[in-house]
């Protein structure tokens, strides 16, 4: 019995050491530069932040995957960005307008825009994700049909608009009516869900940098969405990723665009504040 207690203490020592190792979590020191623009993939955490450092998922990926994102000619999401550009220029809806009719050159008008979303929308009385904003433009200004959240068109447009913020530090408004949404998102982040009874924090705060079977856990930062995933063989939205995570823990996912996912998105934008936008990122 005594021997068992000693062994147990030794094993717990191993656990404690592994816990402390989270601060030295396993990710690399590579720097991301695309087209000569350096993108912040690691930034210091401000005082009181739950993480010791804020690190993009890019740092947790293999050199081969990292290289695909670092070169626009190799990045498999660029086909979608090109499609987004054709949609930007195409007249759609009863008002006879295109995006370009009001916003002109996307590379000028949308510079840095994605970095500030989700953003409070006074008229709607709720935060708007980029998808919400695009659809509001379509239905109100263009008199066109809204796009479905995970449609090819919406992914292409969010990729195109997102790319114009590449390298801009993610930073949303946190004050006013956004505060309670961010708080709600934080609550969800730490709530356990599903038959596996896990919260986001169990993997992405407590265990990032470690392997969970064949997967290398990242901090679950959101600065690269929509993201091209090999698993998806294409681009997917952030809310699709949330949904996949929930199914992994055997939880019934919330709907894309739901209050819950919008709140979580807002909280994660705050949690990853300062990371450079990487849209469209490339991941496993």
């Amino acid at each position: 019995m005594t021997a068992r207690i000693i062994k147990r203490a030794a094993a717990l020592g191993v656990i404690a050491a592994m816990g402390a190792g989270a601060a030295l979590a396993d990710y690399d020191d590579d720097e991301l530069v695309i087209d000569g623009v350096k993108i912040a993939t690691k930034v210091p955490a401000p005082p009181g932040h739950p993480l010791p450092e804020i690190v993009s998922g890019w740092r947790f990926r293999s050199d081969e995957t990292q290289a695909l994102e670092a070169d626009d000619f190799e990045n498999p999401a660029m086909v979608a960005v090109d499609y987004g550009q054709s949609l930007w220029d195409a007249v759609d809806g009863e008002a006879g307008k295109s995006c370009a009719s009001c916003h002109g050159d996307v590379e000028e008008s949308m510079k840095g825009v994605r970095a500030g979303y989700p953003k409070w929308n006074e008229k709607a009385g709720r935060p708007f994700t980029l998808e919400n904003q695009i659809n509001a433009c379509r239905t109100e200004n263009m008199k066109a049909e809204p796009w479905k959240w995970e449609s090819r068109e919406m992914l292409a447009m969010t990729a195109l608009v997102g790319k114009q913020a590449r390298g801009y530090p993610m930073k949303i408004r946190k004050d006013g009516p956004m505060a309670e949404w961010i708080e709600k998102g934080k609550e969800l982040y730490y709530t356990r869900f599903g038959q596996l009874d896990m919260a986001c924090s169990n993997c992405h705060e407590d265990n990032y940098g470690k392997m969970i079977r064949a997967d290398h856990l990242s901090q679950g930062q959101i600065n690269g969405f929509p993201t091209y995933r090999f698993k998806w063989q294409g681009l997917g939205s952030l809310h699709r990723r949330f949904s996949g995570c929930m199914k992994n823990i055997r939880a019934e996912p919330f709907k894309r665009g739901s209050d819950e996912f919008v709140a979580l998105e807002a909280y994660l934008a705050v949690r990853g504040e300062g990371l450079g936008i990487e849209t469209p990122a490339v991941r496993n």
Binding site: Q195, L196, D197, M198, R250, E252
Partner: peptide, 24 residues
């Protein structure tokens, strides 16, 4: 702990329908 309970069938938050009411 992060470790799931492997023989528990209730008290979960939004379990996927096909697993609801069942232990792992």
């Amino acid at each position: 702990t992060i470790m799931p309970a492997f023989y528990k069938d209730s008290g979960f938050n939004r379990p996927l329908r096909k697993f609801a009411g069942k232990p792992i």
